[in-house]
Design a protein around this nucleic acid. Structure first.
Length: 336
DNA sequence: GAAATTTGACCTGT
DNA sequence: ACAGGTCAAATTTC
């Protein structure tokens, strides 16, 4: 437990420092001839960093460990109920999902309700086009009422070998068959890093199918993680709020879910985003946070919109605060 | 032969 | 009762 909070402190420090750095960049951009979008994204990233920091503080460092630790307690540790109704927010779903298999019945006990969701646009409408860096194994397919296309269910390949309980659902959009809505559930315990950097053989294989796949995958992951990072919002945990994002999609889960417009690999924005230093910086900074946050509904917003981001009044001006990266955040008592 | 996918049956929540 | 989610045997792919 100590280690969990210690890890969170480091993450917290990283986020705060990152927010500061981003603010500096933004300040520089205010004088420069940079685009409004760039400034917007910087602002978004700053907000994101501080949101994350606040989230960690809010949780009191109790969830900074791998999912199973928290799950074993059987109690959602994040104080904000996603749906506003206890027991219906998907936490216990994961809980029982994980524990249930030790029971007599091998069948699922409950159904997780909330998840991360992204929309993926593929160039040719092939489901397998999108590689999020993890290794998935399909375990089911179901026709869903009111949809043209069946929903596919995937779980992590390392479910048995590494006790990784992450799952995802892939549903082709009715409106645009080249778009897939991917709903992620649970968190990865597995050493997924191995997957995000394919072996030379795998790379060779994949490159037969798509050009620049490795680079593409990197940028896809970066973009995906960036969106996950940039849009994390506690404000939108209120399920009653109708999504106003032009990218939102009707949800069948009762959770507030906005979706990220995944940029098609061919889209110029893709390379633009992945090349952005601050984004890559952000990406690196939030990698470990992804695990922390995927236990609750995460709002992933379009980077063109900042409306999903809560305005957090920090009550002070960044100009008034000069934080050194050497600032002893982790000194004893600082976070008490 | 191992791993992945398909698919009908079964289980759970509403 | 129904819809969604998962299991697991059968089948396919590598």
């Amino acid at each position: 437990m100590e280690n969990g909070w210690s890890l969170e402190k480091k993450t917290l420090i990283t986020e705060i420092i990152q927010g500061m750095e981003l603010a500096k960049q933004l300040r520089a951009h205010l004088n420069a001839t940079s685009s409004v979008e760039t400034r917007d994204m910087l602002a978004q990233s700053i907000l994101s960093s501080y949101e994350k920091a606040l989230l960690i503080l809010n949780r009191g460092g109790s969830t900074g460990r791998p999912q199973n630790a928290g799950i074993s307690a059987g109690v959602p540790e994040f104080p904000i109920s996603i749906n506003g109704s206890p027991g219906s927010d998907g936490f216990d779903g994961s809980v029982k999902d994980n524990q249930g298999y030790n029971e007599a019945s091998k069948k699922r006990k409950t159904t997780p309700r909330c998840a991360d969701q992204v929309r993926v646009s593929t160039e040719n409408g092939l489901e397998g086009q999108y590689d999020d860096g993890y290794s998935w194994r399909k375990y089911g397919q179901k026709d869903i009422l009111g949809t043209k296309y069946p929903r596919s269910y995937y779980r992590c390949t390392h479910r048995n070998s590494q006790n990784c309980w992450a799952t995802k659902q892939v549903q082709r959009s009715d409106e645009d068959p080249t778009v897939f809505e991917i709903k992620y559930r649970g968190t990865h315990n597995c050493a997924h890093g191995n997957q995000s950097i394919p072996s030379p053989e795998e790379q060779e294989k994949k490159q037969k199918n798509t050009n620049n796949n490795s680079q593409q995958q990197q940028s896809q992951r970066a973009l995906f993680d960036f969106h996950s990072s940039a849009g994390a919002s506690t404000e939108n945990l209120d399920t009653k709020e109708e999504m106003v994002s032009p990218f939102s999609f009707p949800s069948t889960y009762g959770c507030t879910e906005s979706v990220s417009p995944f940029i098609s690999p061919a889209a110029p924005e893709s390379t633009h985003h992945s090349a952005s230093p601050f984004q890559m910086n952000n990406f690196a900074g939030v990698q470990n946070l992804q695990r922390l946050e995927s236990d609750f509904t995460e709002i992933i917003s379009a980077n063109t919109s900042v409306t999903n981001s809560p305005v957090v009044d920090l009550g002070f001006s960044l100009d008034q605060v000069e934080l050194s990266p050497d600032f002893p955040f982790d000194s004893p008592g600082f976070f008490s």
